[in-house]
Amino acid sequence: MFFTILMVLGIQVVLPAVFLITLWRADFKSRWEWMVEAGVTVFLSAWLFQAGNWSWIGYYFRYLLVVLLIVALIRSWMKVRELPSKVASDEKRKLSMGVSIFLLVIFGAYNVFTVAGYSTSEPALELTFPLNEGTYYIGHGGNSRLLNYHKSHEPQQFALDILKVNAFGIRAKGLYPKKLENYYIFEDDLFSPCTGTVTEIENSLPDLTPPEADPDNATGNYVALTCEDSDAIVYLAHMKKGSVTVDLDEIVEVGQKIGKVGNSGNTSEPHLHIHAEKDGIGIPIRFDGKFLLRNQLVR
């Protein structure tokens, strides 16, 4: 848990801060050097803005990153605008420029792969969003591994992990609390995303204390539905023990309560996992016509 917290803070706070401070304070000898370093900082910031999990430190904190980037770009450009386009470089500067160009390519590629995950050409199953008690944050979602780790698992390749955030865009009281009630989504009511038939249920598995997980029962407590006019199966997973309110083979209406969000199964913290699959292969899902992505909010 401690390592996870350090990793999030390191990647999303410390790393961009280092590049922003470097851009602000570096002693550039030419505009070319500045352009390369500025490009690296812009690409890094753009990638983190899109693909970072901002529910840990606050969804709106990522806009502060944009403001600081603009300030650093303007401030540093004012220092270098009168410099020559290029100058002869010694071996040390050549090595530094080589590293910067390498990072420019890497972070540029990250942005390309991230943007490529914004949409899909595959037909999608239209659903109604299954939560309605506040503001919800898409923790994983999209058509790229950089936005959605589920992309690596074919049956769940278009799955969403959904959290709830407060007015500051934070998902819990504390960085990684052990008390389930400190996660804002815990025990929120879950509603059927479509009219259909209940094909599978599990309702007896325990809710776990973060970061405990149960990989042997990956979905935890869950409800599986076959929506009308579709042969795809929709899974809503990690539900609260004993909260499932529907029965096997029951026909449910869209918007009907089916249970509560919990923390059962192979889960790191309370959240809703939802995905649809057909013949064992994950298919895209849309909510009110929207293909939801990491870092989007649903109110």
Score class of each variant (00 low, 15 high):
residue 5 I to A: 07
residue 10 G to P: 04
residue 13 V to I: 15
residue 13 V to G: 06
residue 15 L to P: 00
residue 16 P to W: 08
residue 17 A to G: 02
residue 18 V to W: 11
residue 21 I to P: 02
residue 21 I to A: 13
residue 22 T to D: 12
residue 31 R to S: 02
residue 31 R to V: 04
residue 35 M to T: 12
residue 35 M to A: 15
residue 37 E to Y: 14
residue 38 A to I: 10
residue 41 T to P: 07
residue 46 A to S: 14
residue 46 A to H: 03
residue 47 W to P: 01
residue 52 G to I: 00
residue 52 G to W: 02
residue 54 W to R: 10
residue 58 G to R: 08
residue 61 F to R: 09
residue 66 V to H: 05
residue 66 V to D: 02
residue 70 I to H: 00
residue 72 A to R: 13
residue 76 S to Y: 11
residue 79 K to F: 03
residue 79 K to Y: 12
residue 88 A to H: 12
residue 91 E to C: 00
residue 93 R to P: 01
residue 93 R to V: 02
residue 97 M to Q: 15
residue 98 G to Y: 03
residue 99 V to E: 07
residue 101 I to N: 00
residue 104 L to Q: 04
residue 104 L to P: 00
residue 107 F to I: 02
residue 115 V to M: 08
residue 116 A to H: 03
residue 122 E to P: 01
residue 123 P to L: 09
residue 124 A to H: 13
residue 124 A to K: 13
residue 129 F to I: 08
residue 132 N to C: 01
residue 136 Y to L: 03
residue 138 I to W: 03
residue 140 H to E: 13
residue 143 N to E: 01
residue 146 L to G: 01
residue 148 N to W: 05
residue 152 S to P: 00
residue 160 L to H: 13
residue 166 N to E: 10
residue 169 G to T: 09
residue 171 R to E: 14
residue 172 A to F: 01
residue 173 K to H: 11
residue 173 K to N: 15
residue 174 G to C: 03
residue 174 G to V: 02
residue 176 Y to N: 12
residue 176 Y to D: 13
residue 180 L to V: 08
residue 181 E to P: 00
residue 183 Y to W: 15
residue 184 Y to C: 10
residue 184 Y to A: 11
residue 187 E to H: 13
residue 191 F to Q: 06
residue 191 F to E: 03
residue 198 V to Q: 01
residue 198 V to G: 04
residue 200 E to F: 09
residue 204 S to K: 11
residue 208 L to E: 06
residue 211 P to S: 12
residue 214 D to Q: 09
residue 216 D to M: 09
residue 218 A to G: 11
residue 222 Y to A: 10
residue 223 V to I: 11
residue 224 A to K: 15
residue 224 A to Y: 07
residue 234 V to C: 05
residue 237 A to F: 00
residue 237 A to L: 07
residue 238 H to K: 08
residue 239 M to V: 05
residue 241 K to I: 10
residue 249 D to S: 15
residue 250 E to D: 11
residue 251 I to L: 13
residue 253 E to D: 14
residue 254 V to E: 14
residue 260 K to H: 02
residue 262 G to W: 01
residue 262 G to R: 08
residue 265 G to E: 10
residue 266 N to R: 06
residue 270 P to R: 12
residue 274 I to R: 03
residue 275 H to A: 07
residue 275 H to G: 02
residue 277 E to W: 04
residue 277 E to Y: 04
residue 277 E to G: 01
residue 277 E to A: 05
residue 280 G to I: 06
residue 281 I to E: 15
residue 281 I to G: 01
residue 282 G to V: 08
residue 284 P to Q: 05
residue 292 L to R: 10
residue 296 Q to Y: 03
residue 299 R to N: 14
